[in-house]
Amino acid sequence: MSLRRRRLTEKCFKIATALITWSSIAILGVLVFQILKEGMQWVDWQFITSLPSRKAEKAGIYTAIWGSFYLMITTMLFALPTGIGAAIFLEEYGGKSRLSRFIDVNVANLAGVPSIVYGLLGLAVFVNLFGFGRSVISGGLTLGLLVLPVIIITTRGAIRSVPKSIPQAAYALGAKKWQVIFFHTLPYALPGILTGVILSVSRAIGETAPLIIVGAAAYVAFVPESLLDEFTALPIQIFNWTSRPQEVFHSLSAGGIIILLSVMLTMNSVAIFFRHKTQRSRNG
């Protein structure tokens, strides 16, 4: 091939890759634009504090917001200690034993299981077997199992990135293993762990399918008062409004999306801020 033709191929290829890349960014632009255009008219204090309603102009996301809030509390109460505990076990005690390798592969596989399958698990175990019914606790535990692999994997990464010198220094002072882990390794890994936790909350808060399976209700007229109450959630409300044929409800769901995405964006910014801050302070 002549040099000129090679140069031409090169140029065309470069332009093609750039076009493709920037078009996915354009898609994000269109998505944000559409949501703001449709949804902004609804987002006000009344929208946040109103119950769902059959009349669009009166409808709000009060119960959905509180439902999502309680769900996240339940999810994290379960997944946080369990996930971090499992990660510590695998990193610090597991070694290369057959059991820990098995758990390792198992966690990786769990991370790839579709979320809807977790929904089926929650339906069979929490709703029916444990008799929790279609309640906050069923939904929360289901989401907890769902984010568990994410928390385990990110926490392990954070623990692994702790410089070897830190536990060694503590051991050299005669500390016991658990003291080294809880007083030295974990505090150092904390920013990394927190980042992973925030990211897992932001994943859980957008999950819809498993909640539908465990029976989140489409219409709930009150804020859950106990863990065994029925519930709805922000993404469920969005799904519900989008599935209605009337256009006005579509724009309502855009309003709900604005709230949902703002919550997620805030959490992600906090995570990025954390990461940035610790990186800066550690690099001196």
Partner: peptide, 8 residues
């Protein structure tokens, strides 16, 4: 883009 919920 990867983090946007599927319902959106």
């Amino acid at each position: 883009l990867a983090g946007i919920p599927t319902v959106v």
